[in-house]
Nucleic acid binder design. Structure first.
Lengths: 184, 184
DNA sequence: TTTTTGTTTCAGTAATTTCTGAAATGACGG
DNA sequence: CCGTCATTTCAGAAATTACTGAAACAAAAA
């Protein structure tokens, strides 16, 4: 069955953005298709809809599973595997952030820690200090991330909706400042 | 002049991570070199240190400038251009976030808005709703980002250091809840 | 056990991205 | 206006990444 113009447009966009997002065109399109699908799809549905080879779709699904971006489903009396995306968009956001952190930040943090351990040559004093400074910054940010990641979605959304008002909670020295309860 | 083992290791790591970060090896290494350099470097210094072709270094510097990750410097009585990275790491973080948002989020937001405008075919009802939901989520997050981006660094660091305590400021319904001032 | 159905692996090919050297461009001093 | 020095552009080479079809594998049914 052919795909509507709306879906087509969305899917092609995800395919194009794929390379900027660090996934490839196939993975982007497969994800987009699943994201919009009304029901779970099996690999052959995807082949039929997008025209990629069966093996390419298999790779793409494996990749999406490694990102935790798709869920596996089974139907009674059907051996095939069906795939969906989580309904809750926030769950998707959490996955994306966690996964990118793991791939893009953690290896560098490890490396920075390793380099910080060494005793620097006198000529490398400043460079060594700069590395330590960067390490400290990343450690701070990941600690913050780990804290936030434990929050339930409602609390995150509440913080998000505070927007700029969140800044009023704190003065420049990092101390909490008195606030008034908003009238309930 | 040769590069110390410490710098070498750092530079090679940035080169390898480059592809995951959406820049290429040359750009990653050039940035790492500048980041650790005690003084501004000119293009030929970089060629000498890393062994890339002159034109490749030129491209890399252009790319780094487009990310706002390097600053241009001039010496009196010297026509050459010298490059540095900003001293303030937070400025770097801001650039990275702003630039990634511009490249990875904004085009999609534009597309989602465009798709939301159209009147959906009945068969696309659910898909259209899902697109609208995604658009709304991204709009919320970018609005929050825009708010935070206006904060001075001290305030951001203060918020960051609150860590999990930040969640206590808000209840599940998004209302501020009473807090005690930390003893100064 | 053999067949049937569905998934994965893998070696080779296609497409894309990165990198280079040569030529073009620009900008200043004489 | 020319010569010198620095930077940029660009076409093609090199390297990497994405994709395919065929074969291997796995699991349930006959």
């Amino acid at each position: 069955m052919p795909i509507s113009a709306l879906r087509q447009d969305f899917i092609l966009h995800f395919g194009e953005m794929g390379s900027r997002w660090g996934i490839n065109r196939t993975v982007g399109q497969v994800y987009a298709l699943l994201f919009l699908a009304d029901d779970p799809l099996c690999a052959d549905d995807i082949v039929g809809a997008l025209g990629f080879s069966r093996s390419n779709v298999s790779m793409a699904l494996k990749e999406l599973q490694s990102w935790n971006l798709v869920r596996l489903r089974h139907r009674p009396d059907d051996r095939r595997e069906f795939f969906t995306t989580p309904d809750d968009l926030w769950e998707i956001v959490r996955c994306l952030i966690a996964e990118r952190k793991k791939r893009e930040i953690d290896p560098t943090l490890t490396k920075l820690r390793e380099l910080s351990m060494t005793e620097p040559d006198p000529a490398d004093r400043a460079a060594h200090a700069r590395i330590a400074e960067l390490r400290q910054l990343i450690e701070q940010m990941t600690a913050f991330h780990d804290d936030l990641a434990r929050f339930e979605t409602e609390r995150l959304v509440a913080l998000l909706n505070m927007g700029a008002r969140i800044g009023r909670l704190v003065d420049g020295a990092g101390k909490l400042i008195p606030i008034r309860r908003t009238k309930s």
